[in-house]
Design a protein around this nucleic acid. Structure first.
Lengths: 337, 337
DNA sequence: CGCTGGAATTGGAACGATCCAAAAGCTATG
DNA sequence: CATAGCTTTTGGATCGTTCCAATTCCAGCG
């Protein structure tokens, strides 16, 4: 096994010094075009590959941004990851994505590994629960860190937090259902006790209280499966409920499937609004009303915040919330009644 | 801004030499426990972080495996990425995931960046079309590369390819529909001309030809939206079609939604089988029959192949196909006729 | 022809770890 | 107490690049 060629080999082959090769590598304007060409030919000839580790050792700055996601299977996060990566790429930064899979120990390992690799900044959607000293470690290194979509550490002055204005979204959804004639609006899905459940529920509750209506809430996993179950529970235990604000679209779709399974198709006076506006919401049948989050825009904003911090040293606002938008579709509209 | 502490600082603080600190870092058994403890305390005290770039420079081997995916938004790939990452992690390798988003230029950049960062191996699901010299470059470096799910380069002796036995799956699905009484089975979805479409279609075609039946195929994007359209097209132009093998579950779900929208619910003699067995197939209503791919198992196998190649130098078989399994659910079963 | 000054090139010193051979510290033994 | 045979520790060389100051090159000018 022959070893990888180095700039020295390139230099020898091109008949110049290693420094010149280095300058060519960095695209310096002060090397003569002919020299540049000959060096590039030499590189191609001997199959040179740049050794980033060596370069980083000397020059510290790596064009690398870390992204740690708690659940890569969730389309919400992959959409975010994809958009973030593309925005950062257009500014010359590469993104390394890792999935903590809701495992605090794994998250700690991943963050550690990214710090070791010398990422210039980190974007993290943290796992729930004890993150141990992960954030302390980050604080010590002093690299820019943005928390998104979930808050894993309360020190938002150190680790600015960005998310969506879920409360406003659920209030909008609830008011919309009221306007459509619903009189008994349940909240379905979301594990009790989680911050995000609380946020998506509080808007609903406020509107109901203002209208002096009874509150029925069924909590559970944010999955299609729970939606299915919830439909049976509503039909059996809460027959007066005539609409639901769901924790997310998956629950909403499950709920609609459950009603269909029970022989009660939509259009018989039951209305549903979901959350997230996933692709399927628009393309399933009946189309599902949903509170839409502009993930791509959010990702771009996040990239801008990180870039501003890295490049110009301007620390972002500690806590911001992006607006959301209700998209009304057939699942919540009056069906000729 | 104070600079990051180095092993020299740790050594000074602990009163030992840098070599000893290095040994502690590598978990060598030949340093006295007390010494180890004191070094570790020193590291914690001054907030030392390991500099992997420096380490790599000398020792070449990095516990890093690259994964380049063509579409991170596709749940199929995220499932694969997650499982692969977890298996590799249990063997002490970190996985760096990147998304080429079907962009050949971006793919080239990502692969280049990974080589530069010194990944020990690469798993790639390539983009369609011209990959340029990406694979030539990989061939030169000599690092283990596995192609999965898609073939971007024909030299499978250099870049072993692994995928699923889609042809057998679609043949199974078609035979199943025949057995259920279908007499006119269409193939729906998949862009014409793509290898994967061909594979998923060829089993269907063979069974139909053996049974001497007419072939109706509607090609298009592999999305829910196309399924919706396809339903209308079938109803209008091919009224005799009484079943469909779909390119994937999304198309199948769209197709079912389309029939529902047209007022023709399932159970009126139309049968559907999808491909991939995504979560929704089992949990939607009616449950969708689907050809199931064991992605997690496939990811584990891939990890094993890569590990075997990296660690023991045994090059995998050039081309393998994992078996798939038909899961029959209500969407394809006889409904009392 | 010698001089000047900008453009182009160069050699050597970092960077922060690992590796290796050699040294120092320990017993236990004759 | 010298010696052998361990275990533990150590200094220097090394990896492949960037950075910097210094040098060389070369055209233009008096």
């Amino acid at each position: 096994m022959k070893r990888r060629p180095t700039i020295m080999d390139v230099a020898a082959h091109a008949g110049v010094s290693k420094s010149t090769v280095s300058l060519v590598l960095q695209g310096s304007v002060q090397v003569k075009p002919e020299t540049r060409a000959s060096v590039q030919r030499a590189m191609a000839d001997i199959g040179y590959v740049y050794n980033r580790a060596a370069a980083n050792l000397r020059s510290a700055s790596v064009g690398l941004v870390g992204l740690v996601i708690n659940d890569l299977r969730n389309p919400f996060f992959t959409e975010f990851a994809t958009s973030l990566q593309m925005t950062l790429a257009s500014h010359g930064y590469a993104t390394v994505i890792a999935n903590s899979d809701e495992d605090p120990a794994l998250q700690a390992k991943l963050v550690g590994s990214m710090i070791e690799h010398g990422v210039a900044a980190l974007v993290i959607s943290p796992v729930y629960g004890e993150a141990g000293d992960t954030f302390d470690q980050l604080a010590r290194t002093g690299i820019p860190v943005c928390q998104v979509l979930r808050k894993g550490d309360e020190r938002t002055d150190l680790f600015p937090f960005a998310s969506f204005d879920y409360a406003a979204g659920s209030a909008d959804a609830t008011r919309h259902l009221l306007a459509q004639g619903a009189r008994n609006i349940a909240f379905v899905g979301g594990l009790a006790g989680r911050a995000i459940t609380h946020e998506r529920k509080i808007g609903w509750r406020e509107v109901l209280r203002a209208a002096d209506m009874t509150e029925v809430a069924l909590h559970g996993k944010s999955s299609r499966g729970f939606g299915l179950q919830a439909a049976d529970m509503l039909i059996a235990d809460h027959p007066k409920v005539d609409a639901a604000v769901c924790f997310n679209d998956l629950v909403a779709l499950g709920l609609m499937a459950g009603f269909a399974r029970a022989g009660r198709s939509l259009g018989q006076g039951f209305r549903v609004v979901g959350f997230d506006d996933i692709e399927e919401a628009a393309q399933g049948w009946p189309p599902l009303s949903s509170v839409s989050c502009d993930i791509a825009g959010f990702a771009r904003d996040t990239a801008d915040r990180i870039l501003g911090w890295m490049v110009q040293g301007q620390r972002p606002i500690p806590e911001i919330r992006s607006p959301v938008r209700l998209v009304a579709r057939m699942s919540s509209l009056g069906q000729g009644e």
